[in-house]
């Protein structure tokens, strides 16, 4: 019995190990190639770098200097940070308003927000881009406003669900203790919402950071482009000889922040992503 179990466990471990290797392989291959000379990447993509092919950080240096990688990285960081902060703050306020002020208008607002969750982006991509240009939102600051509008659906929905479970009495106690509605929200309601706020922040951060089509349409592929747009441009744009080494380095640099972020906040990320899935 015991040996049978041991054999079975060993088999399971071997299987899981093989699968892990398969899951990590694509990332490992990119990393491996980013350290190889240009020529060897297309010649022998699956062999690890050796003394002959190893070029150290050369590709990374090229990657930084050639494409305006740093600029795109900064754009993405700026847009992600401010969009997420704006979404978390403003949609939580809106959700509280919708849940606590019950009338036909707020109910209608809620239905619109929920409705927006099922509409695919392609449905509004052309017209939204039109308004973005008309209203001069086609810059890294303006796009934050657009992200607020697009993120509102899921975020209001998730905050509302949680706010409904907070007893009204806590807010009434705050009113009696001397809070105005604004103080009630910031001193009492928002601190209680913190777990949901973390979930909403993670879901939106993953979305905005990785989003391609919206920033491509609104910001274009010029100096305001975000990281995914830069990656797409670098890997598909133009003909002729591409600097494969620099491109590999770019892919690695694009993945790296996410993986570091993931390894540090793994618990929250997995919880947040699952909560978003189950609710949405």
């Amino acid at each position: 019995m015991k040996t049978k179990r041991r054999i079975r466990n060993t088999a399971v471990y071997i299987l899981l190990f093989v699968l892990s290797v398969a899951f990590l392989a694509p990332i490992a291959i990119i990393l491996m190639n980013s350290l190889k000379g240009n020529f060897y990447i297309s010649q022998a993509p699956f062999t690890p770098p050796d003394s002959e092919t190893f070029v150290g950080a050369e590709n990374f240096i090229k990657g930084f200097s050639q494409s305006d990688f740093m600029r795109s990285f900064a754009n993405s960081a700026f847009i992600t940070v401010f969009s997420v902060a704006g979404i978390v703050l403003l949609t939580s306020m809106t959700a509280w308003y919708i849940v606590r002020v019950k009338n036909k208008f707020t109910r209608l607002m809620y239905y619109f927000f929920v409705f927006s969750m099922i509409v695919p982006f392609q449905m509004v991509m052309y017209t939204m881009t039109y308004y973005a240009f008309e209203l001069q939102l086609n810059n890294p600051v303006g796009i934050v406003f657009i992200y607020l509008g697009f993120g509102a659906g899921l975020s209001v929905f998730m905050f509302s669900g949680f706010i409904k479970s907070i007893p009204n009495e806590i807010e009434e106690a705050a009113i009696i203790d001397g809070c105005s509605p604004i103080k009630t929200f910031f001193l009492v309601v928002f601190p209680i919402l913190k777990p949901t706020a973390i979930t909403v922040a993670i879901l939106n951060a993953m979305w905005v950071w990785n989003d391609y089509l919206l920033p491509y349409l609104v910001l274009g592929s010029g100096e305001n482009k975000t990281l995914p747009v830069a990656v797409q441009m670098a890997l598909t744009g133009g003909y002729g000889n591409k600097d494969m080494g620099a491109l590999m380095a770019m892919l690695v640099l694009a993945i790296l922040p996410i993986i570091i972020f993931y390894l540090f906040c793994q618990k929250y990320i997995i919880k947040g992503v699952v909560a978003g899935a189950v609710k949405g």
Partner: peptide
Amino acid sequence: VFALPTLAAFAISFL
């Protein structure tokens, strides 16, 4: 304060 900013962004970029 509470609803207008979100609603405006929502109306302009989605609705």
